[in-house]
Write a protein that binds this DNA or RNA. Structure first.
Lengths: 230, 230
DNA sequence: GCAAATTAATGATTTATTCAAG
DNA sequence: CTTGAATAAATCATTAATTTGC
């Protein structure tokens, strides 16, 4: 039914062609902003907006990441084994995650994520983002599931529908029972600091870099998106 | 004006009292996990609200994180002064950001954000997240503005409304005009790798690691939320 | 039995909303 | 009222299941 494969095919074709030029990363000294890689204001192409960056990935980390997207499965389905594309949780990992979820954890902070990641690392490759995403998705889908269920229940048991949902939404279900769910507050998150950097900055010719103190336990940073040019 | 402070106060009070005893995590098979700090399954209260890190700067990562959750600003709401609450972009910073935006940048990747942050750091305190959020918000609000405008235009010029929007949204406007909006593809982002460290702290003492090739330019990490217990 | 073709799950991103500081 | 910060909802894309033709 779905044309997923077509999509993929087209996708890959494109991928193959693109080249990427991530910016020549000149030294971050920022002497001149103009020199910033920044994809030249990201205007790379006047017209091509959406581009999906051929380069997409890594700069920072995972080299294998890149490799994967190219050919990997065009040929056969077998994967290179080393750096697959996306995280595939092992049963044990899932077990732990679900345990935590049932325990009441919903949105672990960076520290917690770190801890969990470490723990789960014992059972297979995993990164913090995986944990983060897992909780987001699980929470959302669990809620969604409940919603649907509740709706069904309502429609079958009672006849009065206090609220008409546009489609199937349920007002505000209560997620898990535990937790008093006090007032709904939003609070700051704990972002890692990008770099020691910046702050002082003072003048202009900063050498910067500086830090890189290897001792860093780990750097956290929310940064989310990627060059996408929407 | 607003009573925000009260909210915070109440919130904090609660925080002080709770202690949290997460369900005894009967470890399925993963022995060590139980020992994890993890804030005990996060059953504890969402930590301190907004704190604005008193001394943020370099410390690189989470040490302060921990500190924060404890007491930090339970006392008064007033902020220490050094670390104000939220980022307040200087005119120069905004100028640069808008320039980039007009240049076409919409969703800078982690590397770009880093670069920008460094650059803007010259004009005042700023962190990567600020840049990240700025683009998110600017993009969203710009679009929103356009939407509204487009809608108005439509309603005044033409009379036929192809689509009825629930409120005011426009189906799928094209953001900026230029751009061919080729196939909409989504690509991977560049997360920092969490582990790397892992090993050391690892509760079980697994050596693992392996990679950790120090070459990493910087560690990025999206982590978003925080303990919230919904 | 198996591999291509689908379909169902779910990992990863992006967009829309909401909250609250200034 | 503007807008930085944070979260939730909506989407997209890839992988595992499952089905189907041989």
């Amino acid at each position: 039914m779905r044309l997923h494969h077509f999509h993929v095919a087209a996708y890959l074709e494109k991928a193959a062609s693109t080249s990427s030029s991530p910016p020549s990363i000149s030294s971050p000294s920022l002497s001149s902003f103009a020199a910033l890689p920044l994809g030249a204001l990201q205007c790379l192409r006047p017209l091509a907006p959406k581009i999906s960056f051929p380069e997409k990935r890594k700069m920072v980390v995972l080299p294998e990441f890149a490799r994967v997207r190219n050919a990997s499965r065009l040929l056969t389905c077998t994967v290179p084994a080393s750096g697959t594309t996306r995280w595939n949780p092992s049963p044990d990992q899932i077990k732990v995650l679900e345990m935590l979820y049932r325990g009441g954890m919903r949105t672990p902070n960076s520290f917690q994520i770190e801890q969990i990641t470490e723990e789960l690392g014992k059972y297979g490759r995993i990164e913090g983002k995986n944990v983060f995403y897992w909780f987001q998705n699980h929470k959302a889908r669990e809620r969604q599931k409940q919603k649907r269920a509740a709706l069904l229940t309502l429609s079958t048991t009672t006849s009065s529908l206090p609220e008409a949902e546009t489609k199937d939404g349920l007002g505000k279900e209560e997620a898990s029972s535990s937790e008093d769910a006090s007032s709904r507050k939003r609070r700051c998150r704990a972002w890692g600091d990008v770099h020691g950097d910046v702050t002082t900055t003072a003048g202009a010719g900063a050498e910067v870099v500086a830090d890189c103190t290897d001792d860093v336990t780990l750097e956290l940073f929310p940064l989310s998106p990627q060059g996408k040019a929407n």
